[in-house]
Amino acid sequence: MSEKRIFIFGAGYSGKAFGRVNAGSTTIFGTTRSPEKFEALRQAGIAPLLFDGALTGEISDALKKTTHLVISVAPEEAGDPVLNAAREAIAQMPALEWIGYLSTVGVYGDYGGAWVNEKTTCRPVSKRSVMRVAAEQAWLKLGEDIGRPVAILRLSGIYGPGRNGLVNLENGTARRLVKPGQVFNRIHCDDIAGALWQLIEGNISGIFNVTDDEPAPPQDVVTYAASLMGVEAPPEIPFETAQLSPMARSFYGENKRVANAAIKAAGYRFRFPDYRAAFDHMWASGDWRDGEARSPMKR
């Protein structure tokens, strides 16, 4: 089998977790909009390139040798920025074997706390989720047009080192908002990386919910983090009286339990099947504060 060469459009928090798992065994290029972020990408094992919505010669050259393309860029009103800039170039990539698109479970909309899976009808509520559905369809259509497998990874609430309830408690921003019956799924960034590698290794196509096993009330997560730290959890705040940004409030307007059987059927086994396993590990290892300084995991 030929050597993999991976290109990530939008190598942010999840992309860097993906690069760290690799431990330098595969060539990975990744884009950012800011040259100031180049060093963080290099530390994660990713060769940095600048992408601000227009193709550069460097990107075009890298794409010509790329075997696996990962897109982690949010859509805009004008459509998917990567497709807008690079559709023709992607359609002509000579070595391309597989495309992966990182989406969100927000595409399902509100199901009143009921379980959803990949066959559930998407009923997006927010404008950003409506745009996500359109972007998913556009990438699936491109794959169909050029005869390449496309995997859509629908991610739940992303957390990990540097982004978690332990950090929020330490810096005083943790809140326990209580909306009766409300649950959310979550996903540790290392499991996003692991699922992505699993699909890449097999050039597997399809739609996959990449999410943990346990949808849970958000206040329970804060309480558990506080118990690990040996500090008092912040007081409960009724959702009705909470001061929230419009975006934060919109998240609470959607309530569903997201099933993950498809990615497990594709062979992936979660490193952190629930938030307790992840928080236990982060607290014991001490890597909860900073996602940039970790040593690479082995896969």
Rank of each mutant, 00 (worst) to 15 (best):
N164G: 12
N164D: 14
G165A: 12
G165R: 15
L166V: 08
V167S: 13
V167F: 04
V167D: 09
N168R: 14
L169Y: 06
L169G: 04
L169W: 05
L169T: 08
E170M: 15
E170H: 14
E170W: 10
N171C: 12
N171E: 11
N171K: 14
N171S: 14
G172H: 07
G172V: 05
G172R: 12
T173A: 10
T173S: 07
A174W: 11
A174R: 08
R175K: 14
R175C: 07
R175T: 14
R176G: 05
R176P: 07
V178M: 09
V178S: 13
K179D: 10
K179E: 12
P180T: 06
P180M: 11
P180S: 12
Q182I: 12
Q182L: 14
V183D: 06
V183H: 10
F184P: 05
F184S: 08
F184T: 08
F184D: 03
N185S: 10
N185F: 11
R186I: 08
R186W: 09
R186N: 10
H188M: 07
H188C: 10
C189K: 15
D190S: 15
D191L: 02
D191H: 03
D191A: 05
D191F: 01
I192G: 08
I192S: 07
I192D: 05
A193V: 06
A193P: 06
G194V: 02
A195S: 04
A195N: 00
L196A: 13
L196V: 06
L196R: 07
L196M: 07
L196N: 09
W197Q: 05
W197N: 06
Q198G: 09
Q198L: 10
L199R: 01
I200P: 03
I200E: 04
E201Q: 09
E201P: 06
G202V: 04
I204V: 13
S205A: 13
S205I: 00
S205N: 02
G206K: 00
G206P: 06
G206E: 01
I207L: 08
I207V: 10
I207M: 03
F208W: 03
F208P: 00
V210C: 03
T211L: 06
T211K: 11
T211Y: 07
T211N: 03
D212C: 02
D212R: 03
D212W: 04
D213T: 02
D213E: 04
D213Y: 00
D213I: 04
E214G: 11
E214N: 09
E214C: 15
E214V: 11
P215H: 01
P215S: 01
P215G: 03
P215Q: 02
P215F: 06
P215R: 01
A216R: 11
A216H: 09
A216M: 15
P217M: 09
P217T: 06
P218Y: 05
P218F: 04
P218N: 11
P218E: 06
P218C: 07
P218L: 06
Q219A: 14
Q219T: 15
Q219D: 14
Q219R: 13
D220M: 15
